[in-house]
Design a protein around this nucleic acid. Structure first.
Length: 125
RNA sequence: GAAGUCGGCCAGACAGUCGCCGCGCGAUCGGAAACGGUUGCGGGGAGGAAAGUCCGGGCUCCGCAAGGGAUGAGUGCCAGGUAACACCUGGGGGGCGUGAGCCUACGGAAAGUGCAACAGAGAGCAGACCGCCACAUGCUGGCAACAGCAUGCGGUAAGGGUGAAAGGGUGCGGUAAGAGCGCACCGCGCAGAUGGCAACAUACUGCGGCUAGGUAAACCCCACUCGGAGCAAGACCAAAUAGGGGAGCGUACGGCGGGCCCUUACGCCGCUCCCGGGUAGGUUGCUUGAGGCCUGCGGUGACGCAUGCCCUAGAGGAAUGACUGUCCACGACAGAACCCGGCUUAUCGGCCGACUUCGCCU
């Protein structure tokens, strides 16, 4: 229907995810950090890939029940999927905080939209 | 109609948009192929508990001759079902409920050891505190028989009192008062008979005057069962780096070694190739199974047998989602991680069937 070069892609292939331990270690080693009361977002510029990638770390401390952990992961992935094309080429690691499990989907989506924007403008030293 | 009991079922619905993970078919690119990448279409994608990890198995590796014993752990009325069980079904005993029904670790206390706070006179070969009764002595009253009181010595487990529990119960006889002391009935124990596969039952027969209290989720005894660890099990492929083994080449130069020195020879250090172990990583195990559904047959039932049909998640930092709209009874507990059979716990509501009690109508 519309020109694919103009519509941003909302796809979320496996290549856009941090899959192995090394990827996570790379971000943790030297990350810039933004946070609010629901999430902490670590990010680092990754020169070896072309696209933004994301990884999730949801501890049992943040959400005790498996159902809550799944919900948080899904919401983060969904938000990342929608913002992926506009937040630069970086690796992100998102850590939900304990307050997140009580918040509504809408609140969390707004929170993440802000965090992506802030993470993009910070510079990695 | 109201209250209740038991069993079974459902787990918001529909539409659109954007995504994620397998599968099938096709297109295309790479490749000899196997297969892999990209892409289109079709179809599938959490639970009744997926949970707790409390039991029972399958599967895998380790150990192990068969078998027996010890230790430890578990199970505990009987019969059946099952791959197996601590589960299920049926039956028996006991308890609760007007009832439908529900609950029940329910073997052994006449093998042994232990325990029982407080209270109480006494708590296990019982026990006289009050009481009751006889006798003796004294005092008082009385003509006397005798009565009352006190003390002493006995008898007595019927009554009071204590306790969770006081050593069968009721009645009659009996007695100084009492007592299974005697009798009847009930209870209890033992033996037999009868019924039942059995647990067990009996309004049956005989014996025993009652001895043999409770506690075994106290030790214990008896019977039966049990090897250990778990999918991060295990199997396969396999970089980089370091190291191991073998073969060949070079021994040109140099160094090291057998320790008094020298020479020759030999070995090592070098290079090339091969081999096995193994880390990261990848593949597999991974979903077709004690499988589900329908019908029929056997069985009181759990369940079994037969025919037919169906294939119904398989991720891997971990998919099964998000948003919008409409509707309603306004949506609980909660998320697969090798797989099954159970148990237990959590849970908004709703539907269906069978049954019970009460009320009303005919």
């Amino acid at each position: 229907m519309t020109d694919p070069s103009q519509t941003p892609s909302f796809a979320f292939p496996r290549t856009a995810r941090l899959t192995c331990k090394g990827d996570f270690d790379f971000v943790f080693a030297k990350a810039s950090r933004v946070a609010d009361r629901y999430f902490t977002v670590l990010s680092r510029h990754q020169p070896q890939v072309d696209d933004a990638r994301v990884g999730l770390v949801v501890s049992k401390k943040a959400a005790k029940r498996a159902v809550d952990r799944n919900r948080l992961k899904r919401l983060v992935r969904e938000s990342f999927r929608q913002h992926r094309s506009s937040i630069g080429v970086r690796d992100f690691v998102v850590l939900p905080r304990p307050a997140a499990k009580q918040a509504s989907n809408n609140e969390l989506a707004n929170s993440l939209a802000n965090l992506w924007r802030r993470a993009m403008t910070t510079r990695t030293c």
